[in-house]
Design a protein around this nucleic acid. Structure first.
Length: 375
DNA sequence: CGTAGACCTTT
DNA sequence: AAGGTCTAC
């Protein structure tokens, strides 16, 4: 075993571990409340295709990490890998001030709570969010944990606790079945997981790729990082609708402008932003998606318009803005607040002003106005 | 094409 | 009721 330690100078305003690791983005981080260390196993791709045991702990001024690796790695590479996992190059406070606040008073005087969007491995992200449908965070976490402990590989045998990798699509096909997953409490998602794993194994074989991460990288390149086509591809997997596909696009393909629309954010749109779908907007969208088989079949046009409204409003890092709003929505439940309570906000877009085709234009994902120069 | 229900399990 | 998806009208 090789051990690596290091740290980042970073304050809680920029990153709050509990608000990033335990709020429904990643599902396998485990906190030891005694010591304050979070532990998980991650694939440090492209440094290594194997999972490594990683621990994190923060205080008011720094983030410490500890890596237990089966192979030799470069300290500098590990450091940079963690940096990209947390997307540390993105300056959220600056984004809020310059990009969100001028267009949306919702962000006025609000604590961003150190919420960030993680850059995660696409395959695990896909399976995790297939598990998320009509489900709650504690059970999703439990299910992801079970996938690892029952179908992953044991990483070290000498420690007190056992740590397992997240199973590859092949491992899932070889070791799991609909019946075994059901008996572990996956419910109707058991079938989705098996079908998705089988399809991926098949697809990888066709293009001669063995690694799940590399396959999704290949798909991303194939479609030149085009969101609509990648989402269409993702919705080809069983149990993957627009919400799950968008989560994979945002966190697995780091498409920062994508806003996954769930019940919470849908409620926020109607209640706080007075969203109403117009016939014209709906017609334009239907036309736009008319040639996309799965998108046409699975999309909910009203929710899609909500997604586009937020993308227009919040810009290239709209997905990050959503993450922060979502966190606030679930942490201080206003679910019971009367919907009749009128917000001062006016409807954002008049029918004549808002053309969803504008929002459909792909942003320049390379723009770096909000990129910090050095951490 | 949009809408209602079912779908597993746990809180 | 939970951060949906699928199927049948």
């Amino acid at each position: 075993m090789n051990e690596y330690r290091g740290f980042f100078n970073i304050c809680r305003r920029s990153l709050q571990l509990e608000n990033v690791l335990q709020t429904g983005q990643a599902f396998r981080w485990v906190l030891d409340s005694e010591s304050g260390w979070y532990t998980n196993t991650l694939k440090l791709y492209p440094l290594t295709p194997e999972f490594q045991i990683i621990r994190l702990k923060q205080n008011d001024s720094k983030l410490e990490y500890h890596l237990e690796s089966s192979i030799k790695l470069e300290s500098r590479e590990i450091h940079n890998w963690i940096k990209q996992y947390f997307r540390m190059e993105v300056d959220v406070e600056k984004l809020c001030e310059e990009q969100w606040l001028p267009n949306d008073s919702t962000f006025k005087g609000k604590n961003l709570r150190g919420v960030r969007v993680l850059q995660q491995e696409p395959w695990e992200t896909l399976i995790s969010f297939i598990c998320s449908s009509n489900n709650n965070i504690p059970r999703i976490s439990q299910m992801c944990q079970k996938l690892s402990s029952h179908y992953g590989n044991l990483l070290n045998k000498h420690e007190f606790s056992n740590y397992y990798s997240f199973p590859t699509s092949e491992e899932l096909c070889d070791r799991a079945s609909v019946e075994s997953l059901r008996s572990l409490g996956f419910g109707y998602r058991a079938r989705y997981i098996i079908e998705t794993a089988k399809l991926l194994v098949q697809q990888k074989k066709i293009v001669g790729i063995i690694n799940d991460t590399e396959y999704f990288q290949y798909i991303s390149n194939l479609y030149k990082n085009d969101y609509l086509q990648i989402r269409e591809h993702l919705m080809g997997y069983s149990g993957v609708g627009p919400k799950v596909a968008d989560c994979v696009c945002l966190m697995g393909f780091h498409m920062d402008d994508i806003v996954p629309i769930d019940v919470h954010i849908g409620r926020v749109a109607k209640r706080d932003y007075k969203f109403v779908a117009s016939k014209k907007e709906l017609a334009i969208l239907r036309d736009t998606y008319s040639t996309m088989k799965l998108t046409k079949k699975k999309i909910n046009y009203e929710l899609e318009l909500i997604r586009l409204m937020f993308k227009e409003l919040w810009g290239p890092y709209a997905g990050w803005a959503e993450g922060i709003l979502f966190f606030r929505e679930i942490s201080t439940p206003t679910t019971l607040a009367p919907i009749s309570k009128e917000s001062k906000k006016k409807r954002l877009f008049a029918d004549t002003l808002y053309d969803p085709k504008n929002a459909l234009k792909e942003p320049n994902r390379r723009q770096n106005k909000y990129i910090k120069t050095e951490v």
